[in-house]
């Protein structure tokens, strides 16, 4: 049973939502299933920001870097979180709790600056507020 080429991205998204990232063996299998060379699957996976090829932390923080958030100090929020966690965008904390990423725009511009942690959106942030949220999540475990 073969898959359709047009389902490639959806399949990769599903794999990533289950495993947290795209393991090499999974991508090999997907290539087989869809009937495309592995290099093409690799090319697609590395093109879109959503896909990660290495495992991430328990929670993913996405700090919005959209225009409204930028104007309202999104860069300051990002810096505060970077300093606190000790990792830059794309990095994962050594304790494996958090992966920090930036995102172009969450669409919650009227509540800028924003960030999401996994699927929860947090708006109208200040550096202190953002750190409080992260501490709370870390405590929750």
């Amino acid at each position: 049973m073969r898959g359709e080429r047009s389902d490639l991205i959806a399949i990769l998204q599903e794999v990533q939502s289950r495993v947290g990232y795209l393991p090499e063996e999974a991508m090999q299998r997907v290539a087989e299933h869809v009937g495309v060379p592995e290099s093409e699957v690799y090319g697609v996976a590395t093109f879109y920001s959503q896909f990660r090829l290495t495992p991430g932390g328990k929670s993913t923080i996405r700090v919005c870097q959209g225009t409204a958030c930028h104007v309202q100090g999104g860069a300051i929020i990002l810096k505060a979180i970077e300093d606190e966690l000790g990792v830059g965008p794309g990095g994962t904390t050594p304790d494996g709790n958090f992966t920090l990423e930036t995102v172009a725009c969450l669409g919650a511009c009227a509540l800028s600056p924003n960030m999401t942690v996994d699927d929860e959106v947090y708006g109208q942030l200040t550096p202190e507020k953002s750190l409080d949220i992260l501490n709370e999540i870390a405590e929750r475990g």
Partner: peptide, 26 residues
């Protein structure tokens, strides 16, 4: 419904169609 995967360029018509076809959004 087809979901994007994090590429601003896929708002461009031909890149969007490439993405629906399961390709790099170029």
């Amino acid at each position: 419904i087809k979901e994007g995967a994090g590429a601003f360029v896929c708002g461009e018509e031909t890149a969007l169609m490439a993405s629906i076809e399961g390709r790099r959004g170029m």
